[in-house]
Nucleic acid binder design. Structure first.
Lengths: 113, 113
DNA sequence: TTGACATAAAACCATTTGGTATCACATAAA
DNA sequence: TTTATGTGATACCAAATGGTTTTATGTCAA
């Protein structure tokens, strides 16, 4: 028995990969406040635009942002739907642990105290 | 304004990193069903025990499993509390999006249909 | 049309990552 | 005490990753 993702399930790997880098997670928090061009995003980090652009590409591959061309700039916009694959993955444990009265929700609440 | 994790917040990076690999996510699903030794886990994957051991170390670094010595074997056990850092990170967006009536919960439900 | 500017793309580099093979160590069993 | 077995640790390798620099390309404004 080798556990593998079901073939029909949308591949969650690009999303998990996109979330694995701290800079990309910070970019997502940035874009949660407002849509931004690449130049805008770059202004918040100590790295070249090219590097930021690569991160945005990874985020786009993971479905976590959408990019819309607007003249000579591109508007990077967070995509709430893109979180679904990861959230659904967590849901597996949530439903699984319902039996043990150890839901993920209770885990969060425990951490809050 | 450069977004960085608050110094007092437990570092979530090792947890995100641990979740970024598909094999490690499969291991977690395995351990959700029952605790296992390294040999047990290895039996489910087409790779050497050494490779599986590395994955288990990364999962342990991320706090997602605990390891208990038992004679000459080691029992690997999933640690629900270890999910807290990532779940809390998602909570940020959840509360943020409450204003827009776009909570993560609704994202999941939309994906279910 | 010319020049400025935002993004794209490619080559390149150092480090990390996921895997292997090998050897050492500790514990259970003969 | 041997011997087998489960695990740990190290060295090593190919590929991926995160960054830079440089060179296009496309679009807006004089």
């Amino acid at each position: 028995m080798v556990l593998r993702e079901h073939p029909m399930t949308p591949d969650s790997q690009p999303t998990f990969r996109a979330l694995a880098d701290p800079t990309r997670r910070d970019i997502l928090k940035l874009l949660a406040t407002q849509d931004m061009t690449i130049a805008d995003v770059s202004g918040h980090f100590d790295m070249t635009r090219a590097a930021v652009k690569k991160h945005l590409s990874v985020l786009s591959d993971g479905g976590l942002i959408t990019v819309e061309a607007q003249g000579r700039t591109k508007i990077n916009r967070i995509n709430p739907t893109g979180f679904a694959p990861v959230l659904n993955w967590f849901e597996f444990f949530d439903t699984f642990w319902d039996d043990r009265l150890t839901t993920l929700k209770s885990v969060i609440e425990k951490d809050m105290t």
